[in-house]
């Protein structure tokens, strides 16, 4: 039983967030610290690129974490802190791309492709439905070769 519990604990261990924030960086005010953590999780570490500054051990990430906390302590709003960083490092500093003109294709692209696919499929099926409703024998459209193959395939299924 104990072995099992230890196993479970070990399996779950990596799920607790491992982050790079050092104890001496943590702000005394828990509310500010919470905001700093939330912000840091969406700020990209420019050195390691796919890590947030909250996760990264890079020197620059540490500098930016301290900077974020300084600005929050000075009374900046969350957006003011982000704007400060975007002005210097560009939109890329945010892990989640901003929603604006140049990124519409990024946000709407997948939805657009899905809508086109749905329209295409519905046109395809509706047309087929209509042909069947009109009593058109669709097998008549097949070439002689294809008709033979179809007949053979259908025969295979018969007992």
């Amino acid at each position: 039983m104990r072995a099992l519990l230890i196993c479970i604990a070990l399996i779950l261990a990596p799920l607790t967030s491992a982050n790079a924030v050092l104890p001496n960086e943590v702000l005394k005010d828990p509310l500010l610290e919470k905001r700093a953590r939330a912000l840091s999780k969406n700020i990209r570490c420019l050195v390691c690129q796919n890590q947030s500054i909250d996760d990264s051990n890079a020197d620059l990430a540490r500098d930016l974490r301290i900077l974020v906390r300084e600005r929050l302590t000075a009374g900046d709003s969350d957006t003011a802190v982000l704007d400060f960083l975007i002005a210097r490092y560009g939109d890329f500093v945010m892990l989640k791309p901003p929603f604006k003109g140049s990124t519409y294709i990024l946000w709407f692209g997948p939805v657009g492709i899905f809508i086109i696919a749905v329209i295409g499929l519905s046109v395809f099926f509706r047309r087929r439905q209509r042909l069947i409703a009109q009593g058109e024998d669709l097998t008549a459209r097949l070439s002689g070769d294809e008709r033979e193959r179809l007949a053979r395939l259908l025969d295979e299924d018969r007992p």
Partner: peptide
């Protein structure tokens, strides 16, 4: 460096 957007 941060003011200049230096990342490396």
């Amino acid at each position: 460096g941060i003011e200049w957007g230096v990342y490396g």
